[in-house]
Amino acid sequence: MKTNLRIYLAGVKTALASRMAYRGDFLMSMLIMLLVEMAAPLITFLIYENGATFPGWNMYEALLIQGVFLLGKGIAYPFFFGIVWNTIERVREGTFDLLLIKPKSVLFMAIVTAFDSEDLGKLIGGVTLFTLSLKRLPAPGWGEWLQFFLLFAVTLMVLFGYGLIMAGLGIVWIGNFRVYDIFSSITNFGLYPTAIFSKPLQTIITLIIPIAILGSVPATVLLGRPSAGTLGAVGVGLLFLLFSLVFWQWMLKKYTSVGG
C-alpha cells in the first residue's frame, strides 16, 4: 500500500512538473476548468433571478445538488478520471504497451500516469459552490453528514466506474474522445433535482443507470429529505462499479497493440 502511494505521488509530481513548463497556460486552464463547470449553476442562477423556479426547490437547494455533482467531478477528474484520456491517447499512439510491461497492474499504471493537474480547477469550483450553497441552508446534523459521506463515497465509486467504461471503450474505439461527450450528456441529468424529470426517467437515472447518485441523492440527504430509492441507488452504484471492472478487463483482453 505504501509503495503504491509512493508511486502514485511520483506520478502526481511528474505530471505537475511537466505541466509547469507552461505555467501561464496551466493557471489559465485551471481557471477555465472552474468556469466551464459553472455553466449549469449560472443557468440555475439566471432562472431564479428572472423570477422562475424549479417547483419545490429554492435556488440554494438546486445549487447544492450542482455543488455535490461538481465536488465529485472535482475529485474524480484530477485524481483518477485521467485514465480515460490516458488510455485513449496511448492506444492511438501505440504506447499503451508500455503500461502492459510494467511490474504493476495496468489499471494502476493507467491511473498513476494520468494525474490531471488543471482539473483541480473543477475541485476548487465544486468546493466553492458546495460551501456557498450550504451556508444559505439550514445546517445538517451529524447523522445527515454521516449519511452524506457514505453516499458521496458511492458517488466517487460510480465516477470511477464511468471512467473505467470510457477508458475500456477507448481500447476498442480507437482515438474516440467523444466518449466524454457521451458521458457529459448522460450525466447532465444529475445536475438537476430528480423530481423535475418524468417518473420513468427518474427510475432510469436512479435505479438503472446511476446518475442521480452523482448529485441529487447525496444532496437531498444533506437537505434532510432523502430521495425515494436512495438504498436502491446505492445498490445500483455498487453493481455498476463491479460491472465496470469486468468491462475493463474484458476490453483489455481485446487490446491489439497496433496503434491507430
Binding site: F54, D181, I186, Y192
Partner: peptide, 19 residues
C-alpha cells in the same frame, strides 16, 4: 449526444414553465 442534451433542456424548462 444532441438529443440527450436537448432532453435535459426540455425537462428543465418544462419544470420552470410549470407555474
Amino acid at each position: 449526444v444532441g438529443p440527450v442534451f436537448f432532453l435535459t433542456q426540455m425537462f428543465i424548462w418544462r419544470a420552470v414553465y410549470a407555474t
